[in-house]
């Protein structure tokens, strides 16, 4: 996977109960691009991310990460290069301590323990939880939990970073810190959010989903500066 592009070709996804969450998404995201995934509640943002990290597979159509099609067979390879910060941090923190949570990914990658420690401490420092590693997740505030969840993915140093609503619960300082971290990040970022300001500060490109389809794909500047268009997109 030398070129970490992500390509969606006419992707459909139907949930077990029959909900058509994605109805023909086609997109290509180049390596190093930072894309804001926008759209109303239920428009399919989270679903698209789950497909990108080989956690779900398209009902029809195809997702490619680099040259590799996302299938059950390639899942573990895909997940190695794709990092995914879930919408709900509670789902990501399940170890006795925050440190163990942040070290979970690197340990799964079977890195030597010194490297695991280096990465975990580095990631915790980045998100501003330097001395909080020994705490249990229930001892953190909602915003700190969010930061810990982000750290647990940063420690894997992924080539493609998926973030689902990462600024929810963050205070001004933590939010600013997040923007800084992401702006230093050299690889691909796909950011699903309702926080337009955050999107504009991090991303170059905006993709708006509506009822499982791409409604708009444009430079984020031209979307933000066009209030007519914003209204039309219900943003």
């Amino acid at each position: 996977m030398s070129h970490h592009f992500v390509r969606y070709t006419d992707v459909h996804y139907r949930y077990n109960d029959g909900t058509e969450a994605l109805r023909g998404v086609s997109l290509e995201i180049k390596h190093g691009e930072r894309v804001a995934l926008l759209g109303l509640n239920g428009s399919g943002k989270s679903t698209l991310m789950l497909l990108t990290d080989a956690l779900f597979y398209p009902t029809s159509g195809e997702v490619n990460v680099g040259d590799v099609p996302v299938t059950e067979k390639t899942a573990s390879m895909i997940r190695r290069s794709v990092g995914f910060v879930f919408q709900d941090p509670e789902d990501m923190l399940f170890m006795p301590t925050i440190y163990d949570d942040v070290a979970f990914g690197p340990r799964n990658m079977q890195l030597p323990e010194e490297e695991v420690m280096r990465r975990a401490e580095n990631a915790l420092t980045l998100v501003g939880l330097k001395n909080m590693g020994e705490k249990a997740s229930y001892q953190l505030s909602g915003g700190q939990r969010r930061s810990a969840a982000i750290a647990s993915v940063l420690s894997m140093e992924p080539d493609i970073l998926l973030l689902d609503e990462p600024s929810a619960n963050l205070d001004g300082k933590a939010r600013k810190n997040l923007i800084e971290i992401l702006n230093k990040y050299e690889h691909t970022i796909i950011l699903a959010t309702h926080d337009l300001d955050l999107a504009a500060k991090i991303c170059h490109r905006a993709v708006v989903l509506e009822e499982g389809r791409v409604k708009l794909d444009s430079p984020i500047e031209s979307l933000i500066s066009n209030s007519e268009l914003l209204k039309e997109m219900s943003l």
Partner: peptide, 13 residues
């Protein structure tokens, strides 16, 4: 189920 999914996303096999 969601926790397990998040574990898989971080390379849990």
């Amino acid at each position: 189920i969601r926790i397990h999914r998040a574990m898989k996303a971080r390379g849990f096999s």
